[in-house]
Write a protein that binds this DNA or RNA. Structure first.
Lengths: 159, 159
DNA sequence: CGGTATCCACATGGATACTG
DNA sequence: CAGTATCCATGTGGATACCG
């Protein structure tokens, strides 16, 4: 039980949740992934209250997930865009969307996500071993520094 | 802009968020992935108020993400366990954790997630094309039913 | 256009006590 | 052990008006 507690505390999930673990933040993010960039676009697309939208956008900017910039031609126009850190949430967003399609709505939603080059569906997002095997929960192990295989763990063990 | 609106509405993310898009639900889920199963375990591990915990557990059970069962030997002992639907959130959880490690805490957290067989680190969760290429946001396209490549789209086009 | 300011309703969270 | 009941403080969300 001590060990469990230890595992929980060390996990970085709470840090991630502080940034995006809130309903509106997540929906704004999804809208951003879909290409929305302006305050009014978010507001009308999501139907969110303006004060809340303002607050959430500011929070996302503070966390470095979205960037804020005035357009060159019209200074009053502000653009919110995903930063690299924000774009790095793509696997999370896609995984959650796929889960929703599979287990909540039950059907693949359209528009579907496809590889732009091939116009073919992407793979389901999965947890993969180094050799490419798909791993389930029971295939995973929570390893302390000493427990890991040599080639992978030595950089850390050296600390 | 109409097209954007359309894209947003069809996405299954909101359905997924209704189930797990809330701070405590997510943390309870994480604890469940770490092996916690009893009310008191969750309560003391997370420091959550009992009434809120009660509410969130009930919600997760209603959504079919966790199952609830009395132990055979002691009927007063209740076990909450992840259902298959709940376990299917693994890629989402791992993706978010990895994101947090990379962009929030900056360091790989311990205990680390490893492949149980090899004791080697898992791969970063990514969005993959059919041929295995890692896809970024700009590699993706939101495809309407007609737009997809033959072998993939014909079942749907037949509707 | 992109916000603040204000007000109000309600949800959420924490603490604590009690129960089967 | 696994809750429910109660109370209270604060947070969140919606509506609306206003502003540079």
């Amino acid at each position: 039980m001590d060990k469990l507690r230890e595992k929980l505390d060390a996990c970085s999930l709470p840090a991630a949740l502080e940034a995006v673990g809130e309903r509106w933040s997540f929906l704004i993010l999804r809208a951003a992934f879909n290409g929305l960039r302006h305050f009014e676009e978010f507001q009308s697309a999501l139907g969110i209250a303006r004060n809340i939208l303002s607050d959430r956008l500011a929070r996302l900017v503070r966390h470095g997930i979205m960037g804020r910039a005035a357009l060159a031609d019209d200074r009053r126009k502000i653009e919110y865009r995903l930063t690299p850190k924000g774009e790095a949430l793509l696997p999370t967003m896609v995984a959650l969307r796929q889960w929703g399609e599979r287990w909540e709505t039950g059907v693949p939603a359209f528009p579907a996500l496809v590889d732009r080059n091939e116009l073919r569906p992407i793979q389901p997002v999965a947890v993969l071993a180094q050799d490419g095997r798909v791993l389930q929960l029971h295939d995973l192990h929570w390893a302390l520094p000493g427990e890991m295989a040599r080639d992978a763990g030595e950089a850390i063990a050296a600390e």
